[in-house]
Nucleic acid binder design. Structure first.
Lengths: 254, 254
DNA sequence: CGCATCCTTGAGGGCCATCAAAATGCGTGG
DNA sequence: CCACGCATTTTGATGGCCCTCAAGGATGCG
């Protein structure tokens, strides 16, 4: 499957589950999904797309840009996950109705909106596509679990290396990675929030990654010479992303 | 809704979503769910119910006992979540097919088994019930997010207090909590693994909780005098459990 | 060129990991 | 009933990671 062609044919949804189960979608399903996007919108750096507790009757697909999920507490912000283009950032809102967290843009972003009524219709008419949607929400949970282990286990530099390894793989799956790294609007503060540390310590940890030749972060440009070295250092194994590793599945029933 | 009566009428599934959306289930749905359990089984302390990577074609409902989800790394075990009776411990396996983690018993437990074929059938025939199943898998994700924040933010004693607060609330929802605390087969080692610390430090943290009068853990018996004091100390708010807090929903469409 | 934002560096102290060892509780069997 | 072994819990001492307060440099924009 040629990803560039997919994106040309399906400008809003061409990256949905790319590198994962997109190959298991029929032409009809792809067209149906693309039609689900009733409306698109844009937002800028720091904009809040969804606020904790607000009731929603539609879900949001990230078409371009970066989004973080955050929870606020005592005025401090904690990031619990992040999203790349092609992700349905709040599909779980379909069943939860109110979210337990916020969705914030990092850098400019573009979104597609899908009403919950339309998703309900899909569930009944197209169970296979519905199951793929469910799958995507479970991917989020799998990534959460990996983050929990990462936080329980790794030191700050290794956590950052782990985040870099994950971002790089996920961007590659949707055609946005480079051979020697990736670009991101993330600041050091954002990285710190994703790794449960302070911006100051994140800065020192980044310096260490640089001096060890593991990853070079410079104002949003991440350059990595040796992927194995990075992934070894971070104790990273991409299985949990359900791409083509040990846990991958090729098709899904119904 | 009288929980004791529910459990008498539905011995295998009477605790499913109790305290959450069970009130939104029709009689027919409750009966259908109970019938889904084709088989039950028991297991003992330390038994592994599901192993990372193994392919499964049925899902498991925890009827009695405690279960933790673990990921192993370098011979060390990390707990990423836990389950109480009434939880579908591996419902996500329905869409993921292979799990990214293990499911281990803490103490003796009893399980019910539901085939994926039966769930698929439910999706088409009973979309409302299917959506409740989806909801339960998303609850897990919401709890994961809270754990991430907990690990990013709190010191070891506060993390433990947070875990206690969560277990207590969840046991209460399924009729297994007491006015002054709860009982659990968890050992100090298990608590340490859930909080990303060592057994030794967990022991000191538990001593601190005891001396501060926040919680008294003695060989699986947790006694708490003042719930507000505990929850304040742990910075715990039960909203994310989607019980009857700010994020709760009363009914779910379809 | 001034300002805001982001990044970088230094010093002191607290939380927690690690190594080591002792005490407690519990079931088994003599 | 007591001795014994085992798992679990408890205590002590040392050192490292990381938080905090503080201040100085770099970058980009109007």
């Amino acid at each position: 499957m040629d990803l560039a062609k997919e994106i040309a044919r399906f400008p809003n949804t061409g990256r949905f589950l790319a590198g994962r189960l997109r190959h298991d979608m029929s032409e009809a399903e792809k067209e149906e999904l693309e039609r689900l996007v009733e409306q698109t919108s844009t937002a800028g750096d720091g904009d809040r797309i969804v606020e904790r507790g607000e009731q929603c009757d539609r879900s949001t697909l990230l078409i371009e840009g970066f989004v973080v999920r955050t929870i606020e507490n005592d005025g401090r912000r904690y990031a619990v996950s992040f999203h790349v283009p092609g992700d349905f950032v709040d599909l779980h809102c379909f069943a939860l109705k109110r979210l337990d967290h916020n969705l914030d843009c990092i850098g400019p972003a573009r979104f597609g909106h899908v009403s919950h009524a339309a998703i309900l219709d899909i569930m009944q008419r197209r169970p296979h596509l519905a199951r793929l949607l469910w799958f995507q929400t479970l991917l989020d949970a799998a990534m959460h679990r990996e983050w929990i282990m990462k936080l329980e286990q790794l030191t700050a530099p290794r956590r950052i290396a782990h985040v870099f390894a994950e971002i790089w793989r996920r961007l590659e799956m949707v055609g946005l990675g480079y051979a020697d790294g990736f670009d991101t609007p993330l600041r050091q503060t954002d990285i710190a929030q994703m790794c449960g540390t302070t911006a100051i310590h994140a800065n020192r940890a980044l310096a260490e990654l640089r001096s060890k030749g593991i990853a070079d972060f410079q104002r949003g440009e991440v350059r990595i010479r040796d992927r194995d070295k990075l992934e070894d250092y971070a104790d990273f194994s991409a299985d949990y992303l359900y791409g083509d590793g040990a846990l991958a599945l090729r098709t899904i029933a119904a």
